[in-house]
Write a protein that binds this DNA or RNA. Sequence first.
DNA 1: GAACTATACGGAGATAGTCTCCGTTTAGCA
DNA 2: TGCTAAACGGAGACTATCTCCGTATAGTTC
Lengths: 197, 197
Amino acid sequence: MTADVSTQTAQKPLRADAQRNYDNLIEAAREAFRERGAEASLDDIAKRAGVGPGTLYRHFPTRDALIDAMMRDWAERIDADSQAVVDSGLPAREALQIWFTRFVDNIGLYHGAAAKVMSAMDDPKSPIYRKCQVLAAANEKVVAKAREDGALRDGVDAREVMRIVSGVSTVIDQSGLTPAQAEPMLAIVLDGILLPD
Amino acid sequence: MTADVSTQTAQKPLRADAQRNYDNLIEAAREAFRERGAEASLDDIAKRAGVGPGTLYRHFPTRDALIDAMMRDWAERIDADSQAVVDSGLPAREALQIWFTRFVDNIGLYHGAAAKVMSAMDDPKSPIYRKCQVLAAANEKVVAKAREDGALRDGVDAREVMRIVSGVSTVIDQSGLTPAQAEPMLAIVLDGILLPD
DNA sequence: GAACTATACGGAGATAGTCTCCGTTTAGCA
DNA sequence: TGCTAAACGGAGACTATCTCCGTATAGTTC
């Protein structure tokens, strides 16, 4: 009766052992990435999951494919967060402020993820590209709302807003700062896109 | 009579062959990083320079040490650029705009450098840390000038400005955009730190 | 210009990570 | 119980990092 969210999505169903290994691999990857960052050894992840490297590479041909799978629920959370903000009816500044903060929090969940997301942003070949599109759509939604409210400066483009907030996320991630320390930078972005007064 | 800028700085002088190899290594590194980005193989750089890997590692114990040496003139250029902007007597917005653009250009000279600079920013152990301090000082100078001109919003901190512009640089570098494409993001930063009107 | 020595060289090889190939195992089915 | 498509796993090829130490030589001294 409980929904098995962490399970591989639809497609042709996997054999029971394959599904088990798939799930174990993702779990092991979560651990490894949390401990060691995005450069964690893939063979080591296989070992943690109790499978051979061959099995890992069959399921996930590249590091990015694994990261992509690991972030399956991530995209859903992003989407939910953006919707919540839009539905909140808060004034533009507060709404955007919350959205940006959530953006940085979410993207900072996995060390090194911010950089991955950024390079995937303009690269349709990357497995993470889809996730970026979800992120872009969510961001677009929130920005559009602010625009409807007449709160945005002329010429502010949602795509650029997304880029710069990703940049802030990367700074946080790479300099080893806490997500809370993004606040002053996000304040600059807010002032930069909102109309004065 | 010509100043040998590219030569190792003072310290105990190197033996002639050592100095030659040192210079060749840096030149080879420039080429390799330009072609292959910051992940270029170090052994390959040694090969290009016509020396063994041992020689490379004796001169530059880590990848960062090599990058640091490669960027020797970089810090000087940064400093010169900031001084030129301060001396130009341009209004704050134009001055900052030029400075930010130069910042992104300079930091984008070597693929992958933006990320390196960012992780070194808060890490005194990194060889690149000093360069970051030069960069920070240069930035501080330009921002301080704008503040004297009464052009800045309250609470704008030079350190945060530097961080966010580094973030923009990283976006450009990692997404494979051209430095010119930083302009919309820099516009946001400008509006975010300057007083309205 | 020969001899000496501190300085520097270079490359073989230890270590470690990525990724593949293919012989072996097993889940699911009849 | 037997069959077969699906999946496993680990040996090993490949590549990159980094070290160790026997060899070579720049610079000096007489």
